[in-house]
Design a protein around this nucleic acid. Sequence first.
DNA 1: CAATAAACTGAACTGTCGTTCATTTTATGT
DNA 2: ACATAAAATGAACGACAGTTCAGTTTATTG
Lengths: 208, 208
Amino acid sequence: MAYRQTEKTQARRLEVRQALLDSALELISCEGFDAVSIRAVAKNANLAAGTVYKHFNAKTELCTEVFRLASEAELARVESATKGKGTTTERLRTTIEGFSYRAIKQRRLSYALIAEPVDAAVDVERIRLRKGYADVFSRLVEEGIATKEFVPQQPDVSAAALVGIISEALIGPLSWQSDQQSVIEKELLVSSITEFCLRAVGVQNRGK
Amino acid sequence: MAYRQTEKTQARRLEVRQALLDSALELISCEGFDAVSIRAVAKNANLAAGTVYKHFNAKTELCTEVFRLASEAELARVESATKGKGTTTERLRTTIEGFSYRAIKQRRLSYALIAEPVDAAVDVERIRLRKGYADVFSRLVEEGIATKEFVPQQPDVSAAALVGIISEALIGPLSWQSDQQSVIEKELLVSSITEFCLRAVGVQNRGK
DNA sequence: CAATAAACTGAACTGTCGTTCATTTTATGT
DNA sequence: ACATAAAATGAACGACAGTTCAGTTTATTG
């Protein structure tokens, strides 16, 4: 008998796979999906191009998985923010602020997840993500309407609009002009956006 | 003496150039920038690939010019809408409605102009376009604040947010699920978005 | 119509990138 | 240490799109 797969080798295999995913995520976070070539991903993980295909059948599978992992993590953060304590208004505020701060912190990645086209398979995942964001906001808006904290409105339209506000004002190309803003400026930006959103859903009593 | 350039040939030359621009615009309007290959543009204009290079030095020049022409036209429409008659509130409403209806009517083109990545040169033009939109809205918001029709706010942030709302709710991938909506549904969508925007800038008296 | 220059053509060239696979390296069991 | 299978390598392949250019067609002048 000779070399067989063992626990150790299986673990190592998973490590390599993870290294490839990490490598791709790093490229996306710095330079976007355009920078994700098989050669670049492999090189960044200190591997050869061919090795990638021992772990993923095709580039699109690798991209889809990286996208899914990153977007599920972010969506989970947003979702958990909506389930905190306090009035609907307070939770909407907290959710938007958290979303905004994370978007600022990893602008390139946020842009890649929310807007940058890649291929058909990844686009399916992206729609899932945006739908996920929209659903989370939609539920919150519905709740606010029910408690009469917000004015009557179409929750799904408002939800899409809320995602749009954050996308454009924080992670869209428009916001790329001023890249290294001070903490104060960031706080002002986030609070301006938050207030804009709260007005938009028609929050009645503005105090905290 | 022999063949020389004349008025007629010059005119013909411009016609061919225009045909190439039209051809590219048609491709973008139907299938987006991905469909813009030199061969496709040439074929769609009943020309050979090589001919494109008699009129444009490189693909990027062609793309940039098509983008510029289309985006300037749309921006001009938005800008003129802001300069109509009526209160600032009325003009903001009209501008958003017009923008929205045009976006719905030519969804693919709107998406290509506002979001679809192409290359660095086109991205420069895109930022100009988005900046243009934002400036137009920013001026309107400033005006509304001055007349006390809108609540105090950061005009540039609000302007970016307004562009984001329309982008996401009307031309972003989220809105691609329901493609053939009825006229009634479109009107409801546009009016929901318009009301959302008016609330967002803090319009005081909501009547017309 | 003949001469000539502009306009046009499309096959070939080029570089890039996803993918494959024969070969080499590494890890495991006796 | 040796046999052997898994893992990794990286050169080579194929497809594709931008670009070039030698050859062909078309338009104009005299």
